[in-house]
């Protein structure tokens, strides 16, 4: 057993971190929130170049084959920089199409791998009626029960509490596939989405914690740094504990997805455990960030508010806490 990322995976994370840091994350997020997807799509192309989307695409469609550990590594960095866009949905759509195969996969997957296609995916029932960033996506896939459609259009954007998440209801569209095989592929895609959301939450939480530690180390009241007070320290210690213990659950979920196939060992409980633990940890970090920044933390002009609000949104995206906990016990 070697339950650690290898050097190559760590180097991959470092290179993504470097690229994303250089891309002025806050400006990119604010532009995306305002409907200007230009900087976000430019970054998207560079993520594709780095191979992020190919990680969910089979070899025969110009991908690397499904690599969930590398996906988790990537999404942690994407979360760390709160990168906007339907990242999780594109990867989940790739997982769905990869399972289905055939001309449908051939039509869309090379574009996803190369970054040409940003896709959104909506599991209309029971997950959510909304597709993330459908207005910015090149293809919006909608699963309803055992039916897969390519949406014709989308309804008006319904603003999310995370301004960088633009939600809309897909409308109409031709049926692409129907049946049991489709339902199984959609269930797999939902697990991939939950894993990537969990990893993203870890990154979001890491930034919330790091920025708040920096703030309370510098902010002085009563003549001392507020970070020297136990009430402040203990809150941040708890945030670190939650993140540290969620991370191995995310890695284990990725391994479970890597070893599972349609008939293989069920990865559902492992993914659900990772999802709820990581999102709760990020949310805890977000609440502490808000509280410990004082009134500043309650403003939208604070860049960190983009992370605070994302932590809230991710909590219920791709599996609510209650759904995840029920899944863990269902075994």
């Amino acid at each position: 057993m070697r339950f650690l990322l290898d050097d190559e995976q760590r180097e991959f994370a470092r290179s993504l971190d470097k690229m994303l840091s250089a891309a002025d994350p806050a400006a990119t997020i604010r532009a995306w929130a305002a409907g200007d997807t230009g900087p976000g799509r430019a970054l998207w192309a560079r993520l594709a170049e780095a191979g992020v989307f190919a990680l969910a695409v089979p070899d025969e469609h110009e991908g690397t084959g499904f690599l969930p550990v590398e996906l988790a590594v990537s999404f942690r960095e994407l979360g760390r920089h709160a990168t906007p866009g339907p990242l999780v949905e594109t990867v989940a759509a790739a997982a769905l199409l990869g399972r289905l195969g055939g001309p449908l996969a051939a039509d869309h997957l090379p574009g996803i791998a190369s970054g040409k296609t940003a896709a959104s995916l909506c599991l209309a029932s029971p997950t959510s009626p909304y597709a993330l960033d459908a207005d910015a996506a090149d293809a919006v896939f909608v699963v309803d029960g055992d039916t897969l459609r390519l949406a014709e259009s989308t309804g008006p954007v319904q603003p999310s509490s995370d301004p960088a998440r633009r939600l809309a209801r897909p409308v109409g569209g031709a049926v692409l596939r129907q049946g049991e095989e489709m339902a199984a592929a959609a269930a797999h895609a939902a697990e991939v989405a939950a894993l990537c959301t969990a990893a993203q939450a870890l990154g979001v939480g890491r930034t919330l914690l790091a920025q708040t530690v920096a703030y309370v180390g510098g902010r002085t009241q009563f003549g001392v740094a507020i970070g020297s007070f136990q009430a402040v320290k203990h809150r941040l210690a708890d945030a670190l504990i939650a993140l540290e213990f969620a991370e191995p659950l995310v890695h284990a979920a990725a391994l479970a997805l890597a070893s599972g196939d349609a008939e293989g060992p069920a990865s559902g409980p492992a993914v659900a455990a990772a999802k709820v633990a990581a999102c709760e940890a990020a949310y805890t970090a977000g609440r502490s960030a808000l509280q410990l920044h004082g009134a500043l933390g309650y403003t939208e002009e604070l860049d960190l508010s983009l992370w605070i609000r994302k932590a809230r949104a991710l909590r219920t995206a791709w599996g609510t806490p209650a759904e995840c906990r029920a899944r863990v016990l269902a075994g």
Binding site: S228, V232, K233, A237
Partner: peptide, 20 residues
């Protein structure tokens, strides 16, 4: 656990020492 949280905050997060 109060002492442990102090250790976590000071040694792992790098927060300044304060009164216990």
């Amino acid at each position: 656990n109060e002492i442990q949280r102090d250790i976590i905050a000071e040694r792992l997060l790098g927060l300044p020492k304060g009164r216990r």
